[in-house]
C-alpha cells in the first residue's frame, strides 16, 4: 500500500497528464462518432456574449455591403410577389402554414476547420430548436445543433459530419451532400446513380426527403463530376451559391410537420 501511494506521489505529474489527455481525447473521439457535441460549444452565455459584442462592433464595417445584399433579396421577392398568379382563395388561418421563418444574424463564422460550426444570436427564447434548417438569401447554410437561451450553434454544410439530402433540379434523382474539407467553396454530392444524365452547370437543390429543409432551396451548380471507385455512382463537385466566408443575415426554418413525419417513419421502421 505504502509503495502504491509512493508511486502515485512520485508520478503525479505523469498521471495527471494521462488523466487530462484521456478526458480530452475521449471528448474528441466522441465528437467524431456522434454529431452532437453537447458539452463544449460556443452557444453558452459567456462565449455568446463575447462574440455578440465583437459582432456588434465589426458589423458596422460591412454595413453597406450587407444592406445591398438584403435589398437585392427584397427585389427578387417583390418580383415574385407582384408576378404571382392570383389564387381563388387565400387561407387566413396561420395553422395552414407549413414553415415558420425566424430571422437571425451570425456572430461567429468559421470555414477553415474540418468541422465548422457557426454561432447565431437567437436561441431557445426565440423559438429555435435543434435540427431546424438554416438558409441565407442565396442558399442553404446548415442545421441547428446546440441551443442555449439566447444563442445557438449551427452545424455548417462545411462539416465532415454534415449529410444533407440534395437532388438535381427538375428531376427526382437525389443523393447526399458531404464535404471533403479541401475547399470552402466546393461541396460534394454522392450516391447519384451512373444512369442519371448530368451536365456541368446543372443546378443542385435540396431534396424532398428531408424533413428539415423545404424542397428546392438552391445549393450550387455542378463544377465537375466523375464516377467513383465502384463505377456505379457519380462523385460530383458542387460550387456553392453562398460565399461561406461572407454571410451575416440568415433565416432559420421550422417545419411544423417534422414531428409527424418522424413519428410516422419510426412506426414504419418498427413494423
Amino acid at each position: 500500500m505504502q509503495q502504491i501511494i509512493n508511486f502515485i506521489i512520485r508520478n503525479k505529474n505523469f498521471l495527471l497528464y494521462v488523466l487530462l489527455f484521456t478526458i480530452s481525447f475521449a471528448f474528441t473521439v466522441q465528437s467524431h462518432l456522434y454529431h452532437h457535441s453537447k458539452f463544449f460549444n460556443s452557444a453558452n452565455w459567456l462565449t455568446g456574449n463575447i462574440f455578440q459584442t465583437q459582432s456588434n462592433i465589426s458589423s458596422y464595417f460591412s454595413l453597406n455591403e450587407q444592406n445591398q445584399k438584403l435589398q437585392e433579396e427584397n427585389q427578387r421577392l417583390r418580383f415574385l410577389l407582384f408576378n404571382k398568379k392570383e389564387k381563388d382563395t387565400v387561407p387566413l388561418d396561420s395553422s395552414y402554414n407549413k414553415y415558420t421563418v425566424i430571422a437571425s444574424q451570425i456572430i461567429k463564422n468559421s470555414f477553415s476547420l474540418p468541422k465548422n460550426y457557426i454561432t447565431i444570436d437567437k436561441g431557445r427564447n426565440d423559438g429555435i430548436k435543434p435540427d431546424m434548417g438554416v438558409i441565407t438569401a442565396n442558399g442553404i447554410l446548415g442545421i441547428i445543433e446546440n441551443i442555449s437561451p439566447n444563442f445557438a450553434t449551427v452545424q455548417s454544410i462545411l462539416n465532415t459530419n454534415s449529410r444533407i439530402n440534395a437532388k438535381i433540379k427538375n428531376t427526382n434523382h437525389f443523393g447526399s451532400l458531404v464535404w471533403d474539407t479541401k475547399d470552402y467553396n466546393t461541396v460534394q454530392l454522392t450516391d447519384i446513380q451512373r444512369l442519371v444524365p448530368i451536365n456541368i452547370g446543372d443546378t443542385i437543390v435540396t431534396g424532398a426527403s428531408s424533413s428539415i429543409f423545404p424542397e428546392n432551396i438552391p445549393i450550387g451548380i455542378i463544377k465537375n463530376f466523375d464516377l467513383n471507385n465502384t463505377q456505379n455512382s457519380y462523385h460530383i463537385d458542387v460550387a456553392l451559391f453562398n460565399d461561406m466566408t461572407n454571410v451575416k443575415h440568415i433565416y432559420v426554418l421550422e417545419n411544423h410537420h417534422r414531428e409527424e413525419i418522424q413519428q410516422l417513419e419510426s412506426t414504419t421502421k418498427n413494423d
Binding site: 487530462l20 478526458i23 480530452s24 481525447f25 471528448f27 474528441t28 466522441q30 465528437s31 457535441s37 463544449f40 460549444n41 460556443s42 453558452n44 462565449t47 463575447i50 462574440f51 468559421s110 476547420l113 468541422k115 465548422n116 460550426y117 454561432t119 450553434t153
Partner: peptide, 10 residues
Amino acid sequence: IFSDTMAIHA
C-alpha cells in the same frame, strides 16, 4: 469552447 473544436486544443 470558443472555437467549437471539442477538446482538441486542450
